[in-house]
Simulated scan of single mutants.
Amino acid sequence: MATAREARRVALDNRADPVFDRIGLFLAQHRLSPDPLHYAFAHRVVSNPAGVLAQSVAALTEGGIRLTARDIEKLGGQVVTAVTQPEVAEAPSATDGLVAQTQMQVEGFTDMMHAIRAETQDFGRNLAASADAMRSTDRTEDIVRLTNVMLDRVQSAEARLAAATHEAEELRLKLEEARDNARRDPLTDLPNRRAFEERFAAHMVAGEQVCLAVCDVDRFKRVNDRFGHSVGDRVLRAIAEALTTACPGHLVARYGGEEFTVLFAGITLDQAYTTLDQARDIVATKRYRLRESDEPLGAVTFSAGITESQPGEFLGAVFGRADKLLYAAKDNGRNRIHRA
């Protein structure tokens, strides 16, 4: 089976096909009904494959991911609310469960505060009702009794607050872990596509220019076909480690499949290129062997395209430019980096 990158490239190279056929293929791939709204969105994408919209769609669907209704709305399209095909409901995630627990705890805190307030008001009324009697006669027993009651209530409230605070701290840690897991690739332990996109957006909001590199393992499909996916996974982890080691202080992310991205901040394009080329050379000079049989795996290389963002540019434009440079590097022999 061809990789997602190969499939995308075939689609781009078949520009001579009728637009109508490509629109139909787009709708089928993303399981969109052939309604006018969906058709109009698909027409905008396929009629200008080099445009910002098409590049953004390509970035969102890398790795065989289908567009969602939310994706289409974010890209300026409209969706049909009445779908013709039933959607499969997603199972609740761990994060959803933690959010529900947090909501329940907030409600519990509210109930507790109301109860403590009511108990305090009761004590105040009891104390006020006995005030005159306490002034006119020695009511030491009443004072002791009321004081003991209030102390019991205070101690009970403190115990409940301490338990709730401990539970809140545990939930906070779990939520932080869940947020981190949602932005991390489980195979390589690198930040994932979501984390990369969020970091890029943060730089753009701050008005900072960055250098963006798109890296792709050369002939990765051959590795999977010959040695199996478990070996392919090891190769991906090795590439991830090499990029992380060679690019300290910069964001290295697994974007999808055999594709990685590097976000260089605070350095020039020339400096970023030199750093990335060192990583490429480290990977290319290693000789990998199979752990089980000691059989040589052969050289593993990657190609890359790197470019510098311009003020106010959207991710789709910058990513698309780097992706085209990557294609050029592949076409010119692989195991190289093109920049612009």
Rank of each mutant, 00 (worst) to 15 (best):
A2G: 05
A2V: 07
T3H: 01
A11R: 09
D13Q: 04
N14K: 07
P18M: 14
P18Q: 14
F20V: 10
F20Y: 08
R22E: 01
I23S: 11
L25V: 14
A28R: 12
Q29P: 04
P34V: 04
P36L: 10
A40F: 02
F41Y: 02
H43V: 13
H43F: 12
R44K: 13
P49I: 07
A50F: 10
S56R: 04
A58R: 15
A59L: 12
A59S: 15
E62V: 06
R66S: 14
L67S: 06
R70Q: 12
R70C: 08
K74I: 06
G76V: 07
G76E: 07
G77K: 13
T81P: 01
V83K: 15
V83D: 08
Q85F: 14
P86Q: 10
V88G: 12
A89T: 12
A94K: 13
T95M: 14
T95H: 15
D96Q: 11
G97W: 15
T102N: 15
M104G: 05
V106R: 14
E107C: 13
G108D: 11
G108P: 04
G108W: 03
T110L: 15
A115I: 11
I116G: 05
A118L: 03
Q121K: 12
N126H: 13
S130H: 10
D132Y: 11
R135F: 02
R139D: 15
V144F: 11
V149E: 09
M150E: 07
V154K: 08
A162E: 08
A163S: 11
T165Y: 00
A168P: 02
E169I: 03
E170T: 01
E170R: 03
L171Y: 05
N181W: 09
R183D: 05
L187D: 04
N192R: 04
R193A: 02
E197V: 08
E197P: 06
R199P: 01
R199Q: 09
A202G: 10
A206K: 07
A206R: 10
G207V: 04
C211Q: 06
R219H: 08
K221L: 03
R222M: 03
D225S: 10
A238K: 06
T245M: 02
T245N: 05
G249A: 02
H250F: 01
R254F: 06
T261D: 00
T261W: 01
V262S: 03
F264N: 00
Y273Q: 14
T274N: 06
T274P: 00
L276N: 00
Q278V: 14
Q278S: 15
R280Q: 11
R280L: 09
Y288T: 00
Y288E: 01
S293E: 08
D294S: 11
E295K: 10
L297H: 08
G298F: 09
G298L: 13
G305E: 02
E308W: 06
E308S: 07
Q310F: 13
E313Y: 05
E313R: 06
F314A: 12
G316N: 09
F319L: 13
A322V: 01
K324L: 14
Y327W: 06
A329G: 14
R336M: 08
I337Y: 00
I337V: 08
I337T: 02
H338Q: 09
